Simulated scan of single mutants.
Amino acid sequence: MRKPQLSHLPPEQGVWLEIDLGTQSLTIREGEMCRETFAISSGAHGIGQHEGSGQTPVGWHYVRAVIGDGLPPGSVFRGRRPTGEVFSPELARAHPERDWILTRILWLCGLERGFNRGGDVDSQRRYIYLHGTPAEQPMGTPASHGCIRLRDEALLAVLEAAPAGTPVWLHD
């Protein structure tokens, strides 16, 4: 596992998110205390920093923006904009090609220049998010295009604890 840069360690007090790509889990932490853990699904192509890789980046990030506040669970997003649709099995059958981004988008921004910020390794410009996914999508196994997928209920719980500005450590 890559050691975090000392300048990016989480605060001794306060909420931060730990995303363990090895165990496919997200833990809400307050200081060193574990508040809650959820299953995730990360990039099907593994771990990596580079644009176009379809991989999930590692290192220190923060939640740059939250998109979709106030929309109903299951709201569908394309290009970071709500489509006005709410996910349903019928909608999935009508659009089998879609990579579903549901409920909310927690858009990540890297904190480590040259590693996950800037150039062709910039997590924000790669559109790396935490987002909701349909219930039939697997959790606990890598299956995304690089983002972190969560069940809608888990995503809403994460958002309640971790608003914009919250530190996030992704590691293997």
Score class of each variant (00 low, 15 high):
Q5V: 10
P10D: 06
P11L: 07
Q13D: 15
G14Y: 05
V15L: 01
W16P: 00
L17Y: 01
E18I: 07
L21S: 05
G22T: 11
S25F: 06
E30D: 10
M33Q: 13
R35M: 08
E36Y: 04
A39Y: 07
A39Q: 11
G43F: 00
G43K: 03
A44G: 06
H45S: 15
H50E: 12
E51A: 15
S53V: 07
P57T: 05
V58W: 08
W60D: 10
Y62N: 10
V63A: 03
V63E: 02
A65G: 04
V66P: 05
I67Q: 06
P72G: 04
P73N: 10
G74V: 06
S75H: 06
R81D: 13
G84M: 09
G84Q: 10
P96G: 09
W100E: 07
W100L: 08
L102E: 04
L102M: 10
T103F: 01
C109R: 12
R113Q: 13
N116F: 01
N116Y: 02
L130T: 00
T133M: 09
P134L: 12
E136D: 10
E136I: 05
E136W: 11
A143T: 12
A143W: 09
L150M: 12
D152G: 03
D152E: 12
E153L: 11
A154I: 08
L155H: 02
L156M: 07
V158W: 01
L159F: 09
E160L: 09
A164Y: 03
A164H: 03
G165S: 02
T166N: 00
W169L: 06
D172S: 12
